[in-house]
């Protein structure tokens, strides 16, 4: 199975990759929502979890979350929002829209790993 990271920051994608590979999942990277949705169209059956940045150029992470949760093929995939936005309203909005978890940057690798496992039901 694969875990997808959608983030415009290559560094954040690398940090997430290093945490995910330790868990024996394959990593799929997308630098924006458009690229992510294109990949999901072909690979949605293999994606176990999506780690989604909130602030991205073009379609933002929240808009992408809404699309995922409205799509019959994608809505079952757990989504963890990963963002530097620490506002409580955003967290509530994301959870109400269907996000499984919400991880605030900065985070430690341990924190990230713990949240990923929780999303995968292995926590």
């Amino acid at each position: 199975m694969k875990i997808m990271t959608v983030d415009d920051s290559a560094i954040v994608r690398k940090i997430i990759r290093s945490a995910v590979e330790v868990l024996d999942y394959e990593v799929v990277e997308a630098k924006d929502a458009k690229e992510a949705l294109d990949i999901l169209e072909d690979e949605y059956e293999d994606i176990a979890l999506i780690l989604l940045d909130w602030n991205m150029p073009g379609m933002d992470g929240f808009e992408m979350l809404e699309l995922i949760k409205k799509d019959k093929h994608l809505r079952h995939i757990p989504v963890m929002m990963v963002t530097s936005e620490t506002g409580g309203e955003n967290i509530i909005k994301a959870i109400q829209t269907g996000a499984t978890h919400y991880l605030v940057k900065p985070f430690t690798i341990e924190e990230l790993t713990k949240r990923i496992l929780e999303c995968l039901g292995r926590g």
């Binding site: 920051s9 560094i11 954040v12 602030n55 963002t83 530097s84 620490t86 940057k105 900065p106």
Partner: peptide, 10 residues
């Protein structure tokens, strides 16, 4: 850039 993003977000 990401460090600044994180601290300004906070």
């Amino acid at each position: 850039a990401e460090l600044v993003n994180m601290l300004v977000g906070r």
